[in-house]
Structures are given as C-alpha cells and as structure tokens.
Design a protein around this nucleic acid. Sequence first.
DNA 1: GCAAAAGTGTTGGATTTACACCCATGC
DNA 2: GCATGGGTGTAAATCCAACACTTTTGC
Lengths: 238, 238
Amino acid sequence: MQILNNQNYIPQISIDCVIFGYRDKELKVLVSKLNFEGNFWSLAGGFINQHEDIDTAAYRILHERTGITEIYLEQFHVFGNAARNNIGFFKKLIELNPGTMGNEVYDWLNNRFISIGYYALVDINTAIPKKAELDKVIDWCNVKDLPGLIMDHKDIVEKALESLRQNLDQKLIAFNLLPETFTMKELQELYEAIFDKPFARNNFQKKMLDLNVLERLEKKFTGAANKAPYLYRFRNNG
Amino acid sequence: MQILNNQNYIPQISIDCVIFGYRDKELKVLVSKLNFEGNFWSLAGGFINQHEDIDTAAYRILHERTGITEIYLEQFHVFGNAARNNIGFFKKLIELNPGTMGNEVYDWLNNRFISIGYYALVDINTAIPKKAELDKVIDWCNVKDLPGLIMDHKDIVEKALESLRQNLDQKLIAFNLLPETFTMKELQELYEAIFDKPFARNNFQKKMLDLNVLERLEKKFTGAANKAPYLYRFRNNG
DNA sequence: GCAAAAGTGTTGGATTTACACCCATGC
DNA sequence: GCATGGGTGTAAATCCAACACTTTTGC
C-alpha cells in the first residue's frame, strides 16, 4: 500500500476533513467509498508528516481530493475518545475482505487514533473530486442524507456543521461555497441550506448588504418573465 | 524521572491546560516554574495514556495540580506547527543544567509535539496548587503580567482567553470562577477582569438578571456605610 | 442628615421583524 | 395588461447604552 511507504507520519494522529460544497440548493459533503467489499463510506482523511504543520497537512489532503488550491479551511475540534479506533470497523472489513491488507498497514491502522477535525468550504464547480488510493468512489452527498459513515465520522460532520453555523455572518466565509458571482436569491438559498430554515427575503437582503462586502454587478437576465436580479461579487477588501 | 516510568503515553501528543482563577479583581493563570536552573515557566501540561480519553487526561492533569474534582473544562484549539518542539527551550535548559536529564527522557521530550489546548475555570479558593514532579514553584499569575513562558505557551494563553471571551454570557460558565455566593459587583468585576474593560453597572445587572440563572439570596452586610448588596447563587437548572 | 454604594426606572437610538408597496421582465 | 419575482420602504417591536433617580446603610 503506497500510502504508508516512504512516509514518516506522526503515529496515532489523523486528520479528518469535512469538505462542504453547495449545489442544487443542498449543502453537500465530499465522501468516499473505500475500495473494499462492503459499504464503507468515509470522510477525506490522512496523516501528518513529521515535518509538516497540521494546517499544511489538512491543506494537502484537501488539495489531493479536490484539485483546488484556494481553500477556506478551519480546524474546529479534536476527537480523542479512548474507544476511538478502527477496530470495530476493521473487524467487519477484514471479515468481508480476507487477506487484502498487509501486516504493516494493519499494524499502523489498528491503533487508537486522535483525529483533528477540519472543515473546508469549496466552490463545488471548481473542485474536481479525485479518488485517493483507497477510494473506490468519491462523491458529493447531501449533508441531510449521508450514507452510513465509518467510525465516528457522522459525529464529526455534525460538529463541523455546528461550528460552521456559529457566527456565519461575521466570518464572511459562506461566499467560498458559491461561484465568483451570484444573485441574492442564491446566497439566501445557501444560507437556508446551511441553517436548514427559511429566511425572510427582504430582511436577508438588507442584512447582507449591510455587511459591506458585496459588490453589485450588472443584472442577470435569465429569460424569466420577471425583474432581472443583480449579480453580486464578494469583495473582501472593502 | 517518574513521569515517564510505568506509563504508556501516546507519543508526540501533549495537553496544555490554561487554568484560570480569579482573585483581587485579577484574572489569574496557574503557572509553574520548572525545577531546573534558569527561569523556565510553564503551563500545566501532560500526556495522554493509551487507554484514556483526551478529556479524561486533561481532567487528570487539572486534578493533579489543583486537587479539585468539579472543574469546568473545555478544549479550545490544537497547536501543531512543525516548528513546535522543545529543542530551543531544551538547548538553554541543558546548557544551564548539564547532566541532569536521562537519555530516555531526553529522547521522549526532544521531539515534535502536537498539543491540545484546554482551558479550565476554577474557584481559586477551593483549588490548592500542588507541584507536579518537575515543578519547583507553582502559583497563580495575573494574566496581564505573566512571566516569560516556555515554547508557545504565551500564544496558548492568548488563544484560551480569546475563546473564553467568545459568548461568555451564553455559555453561563463565568460563575465557575467565583465562590458559591457572590454579589453583583463581584460578578461585574470578574467580567471586567476577563474582558479588560469596564461595564455600566445598571445595564450589567439587568443583563445578568435577564439570564434567569441567578438566585437572589439574603443581603450581605459588610459594615460599610451604604446599602447592603444582595448575594446571588448560580442556579443552572431552571 | 450625610456620604457612599446598591437597586431600579426612563429615555433615545439602533437593530430586528413583519408587513406592504413598487418595479422590471417576458409573454 | 398581467403574472412573477426582485428591490425597497416603513412601522412596530425589541434590544442596548446612557442618564437619572430612589433606597439603604453606618456614622
């Protein structure tokens, strides 16, 4: 298994990334199905090289899976229960896949891991999901309808979502989930997807404009029989 | 060195605890001076046993240093820069203390460590600072006037304070820094110490009472020539 | 009575929330 | 013109900061 060769990882620490994207009015998470028999779905994860910052490691993991370099990234929690190990998951995996795993890999993974949780916000149209070595499938899943995830990855997503929601306006980061330009309605629908609740249209617009970070561009003529909405661009340096 | 004997710690991960206390209108942090030549001041830290939850490890470290069991504890950040190691600090220490450290200890500590930061809020009158094995002195220091701390411990305190301030009202945890009963003025002075800024007396009182978690008790007659203030107790349930 | 400090009230401004109205667009 | 959806305005309600006033206490 390549992943552990020529590498000098810090033992017993992993990184798990909740990569958020947004499409079709749904908040999505990038998950991969492991290349083994059985339905093992996992978050994008990895390990930390001995001479690598943890933020850099997270960034590397994200770049590997999405191909993009401009990534909003934030550490949000450490998951470190003693019972947090791969044993339960491994037992099932080995049962279904006898003899597929080398001893050195088994010994590495069959340990307790403390995992640092990061969440990332990416423009789903720019990111191109790329399978890592152990992935059979990689795809965006609706955060409200995730497949059964291995270990405590479900809890990790929950906690990431909770952290994302915390003071989202002030953080001015939601725009990372949208393309370069967008309408106010699209922004509102994004917020509604993140918070899983509706917002009042006029008040939402007022609140967003009051942030003083949106640049109004030309109108977007959709061909629909109604007033054309303005396009906006996020302008950080105001 | 006892600390590493008979122990089975997870390598390259440490815990650093910012233990906050409050006295004389000052927010304090528990720091210890290491039992070596040279002025090496440190936060309360430790390591994680192989079969121990990280929260439990932090709790154990706190209990060792304060003797108390009812501790408000919260993980707030992970410090994991690649450059984050003991080497610079060790060089000075060994220079000043030749031959005092065994090889196995040196090999253990002379490594990169990823440290999980916790902050704790304790009633300074209940806590009895207790030196750990490597401590020469342990004491409460004003957070605004800390001695020079080893490694990045100063940054860790900064970040802990920042996290503590975040939504302090909603978290309803400041009361952990005060004795069982207290006056409104004492609570206000605590807030002023934490935020390092004054609050308006009447508005502060209103805000605190509106939280619906303070139980008003009998008056506290101090003998001063003025109206006696009420005592309050924090009432978490209902 | 008086000074000191605690408790409470009140006002103006800002911010939020709900409701209403006008405007542009394609048919 | 008209239905549709976008943009804006406004009034009520709520929240917040500053000011003022009253009460209690020991001398």
